[in-house]
Every structure is written in C-alpha cells, then in structure tokens.
C-alpha cells in the first residue's frame, strides 16, 4: 500500500473508479436529459442519449398544472426554520454532552442513539393523534415542530463530536476574562466550530427537504404540501406523467446536491467520528 503501484494495477484502479463514477452520476444525468426533452420525444423510440432539442415544456407544464411554486416555498420555509432551530438546540445539548460528566449522561446518549434505530412508523399514528389534539394537523408550524424533534438527536451527536475537538482551555480563558458560559459558547466556540455547525445545519436542512412519510401523514391541503408530498401525489395515480415528474425531480435534487457538495467533507467527518472511535 505504501510501495509503488505497477502500471497495470494503476489502470485497474482508475478504471474501476471511473466506472463507479459513471454509474453514480448516470441516473441524475438521465433524469435531467429526460426533463429537457419535448413531451412527445420522451415516449418515442429509439431513445436519445444526448439532448438534441432543448425544451422547457416539462418545466412550464409542471408549474402550470400544479402549484409547484407553492410546494417549493413550503419546503423552503419548513426546512430552513426547522434546520435552524434544531441546529441551535443541538448546539446547546451537544455542548453539555461533550463538556460535562453527570450521572444520566450515558442514558441520555443512548436515548438519542436509539431514535436513529427504531422504525419511525410506529410513531406515525400516535403522532397524528397528538397533532390533532394540539390542533396542528395540516399546519406548517406543526410540521416544523416535528422536524425539529427529528433533527435534534443526530445533530447533537454530530456537534458533540465537533466540540470534543476544541480544547476546553479556549472557553475557560474567556470565562476568566468575565465571559458567561453562554457568552463563551457563542462568542468563542461557535466561530471556531463554524464548519461543523454549517455541516449540521445542511444535514438537517437536506433531511427536512427530503422527508416524506411524516408530511404525507400530516399535510392534506394542497397549499400546505412540501415537494416530496406533492410528488407522492403525482404518483398515486396509476399513470405517471414522466415529463413534469422528471422536471420536479430535477428541481428537488439540485438544491440539496449543491448544499451537500459544499459540506460533504465535514458531514463525512461528523459521521465517521463516532463510528470509528466507538
């Protein structure tokens, strides 16, 4: 592994890496090409692999036939608010769990870990009934509350890992200089941990943006639907209209891809920190 690589080994290596890159990117390429075809040529043979014509008809149709603009707006509102609040809350809990020892700490960590393993669908029914009692069914605020709760455990675990990499001395020095604990946290630690916090925020945002089953259960009115819920509505009918569907898929995927590309390094760090050490 440290020795020099033979020429043939090198060819095999880059051949494999290239092939996997192709396989990884192809589905995205294909849905994008589909979305820019004229509706007629999507369903015609032979298939064209390069976009010979560049039609926006599917996108225009998507916004004309459905309230796609509303869905996008709902997704942006719900994901941004939920991810922001969840990240702030996880910042506090992650801080406590990384800096202090107390008797119930192990139990708390377990309680957070366990939420990542149980099938969430067991909670779906009771959650619907709970939201009915709170009069928060079919309500964006209600969905935001649930998304915050869903995001907290993992981002706490992730941020705890990032805090562990920052020495105690930093905030102690600030506190000796008269900073309060919370002041030290926000004025000294947060700037140092910016990459980790951004990664946690993006991770939360993408999870909310993609979430389907909770929003399908809770959101009924068309004006309240998020993008995945709306797409789910598109496929409930037996015949999927693949033109607008491909356009919707592209519009859903692009923002999260861009965000992930920015933060992938830190997200990877956050994910592997716990597993490799544990």
């Amino acid at each position: 592994m440290i020795d020099t690589e033979t020429r043939s080994a090198r060819i095999v290596r880059f051949g494999f890496l290239g092939l996997w890159l192709l396989i990884t990117l192809f589905p995205l390429y294909w849905i994008t090409v589909t979305s820019f075809k004229a509706p007629g040529s999507i369903f015609s043979r032979p298939l064209t692999y390069w976009p010979t014509e560049f039609s926006l008809e599917n996108y225009i149709g998507l916004f004309a036939k459905s309230q796609f603009g509303v869905y996008v707006l709902n997704s942006i509102i719900v994901s941004t608010v939920a991810a922001t609040v969840a990240t702030l809350i996880a910042l506090l809990s992650g801080y406590v769990l990384s800096r202090f020892e107390f008797r119930s700490k192990g139990a708390l960590m377990t309680a957070f870990f366990v939420t990542q393993m149980i099938p969430s669908f067991i909670a779906l029914g009771p959650l619907y009934l709970l939201m009915t009692q709170l009069d928060l069914v079919d309500n964006r605020f209600g969905l935001i509350l649930i998304y915050i709760a869903v995001c907290i455990p993992f981002s706490t675990i992730m941020l705890r890992g990032f805090f562990a990499n920052v020495p105690d001395a930093l905030e102690e020095a600030a506190m000796i200089d008269g900073c309060s604990r919370i002041g030290a946290l926000f004025r000294i630690l947060v700037p140092v941990m910016k990459p980790g916090i951004v990664a946690a925020f993006i991770f939360n945002f993408v999870n909310c943006w993609n979430e389907l089953f909770l929003s399908v259960t809770l959101m009924n009115r068309d004006s309240n639907k998020t993008i995945p819920t709306a797409i789910n509505g598109f496929i409930s009918s037996f015949n999927i209209d693949w033109g607008p569907m491909s356009a919707a898929a592209v519009l859903t995927v692009i923002p999260t891809m861009v965000l992930f590309a920015f933060a992938s390094r830190w997200i990877v760090q956050g994910l592997t920190a716990g597993a490799v050490k544990g």
């Binding site: 389907l212 999260t256 891809m257």
Partner: peptide
C-alpha cells in the same frame, strides 16, 4: 461527486 446519492431522498431515488 460519488457522495451525491446521499443528497437525494430514498423516495426520489425510487422514482429515478
């Protein structure tokens, strides 16, 4: 680049 499937929801991967 190979990280990108993670940015997509499983549901949408199903649709692709």
């Amino acid at each position: 680049l190979v990280f990108f499937p993670w940015a997509i929801s499983g549901f949408l991967i199903g649709i692709l």
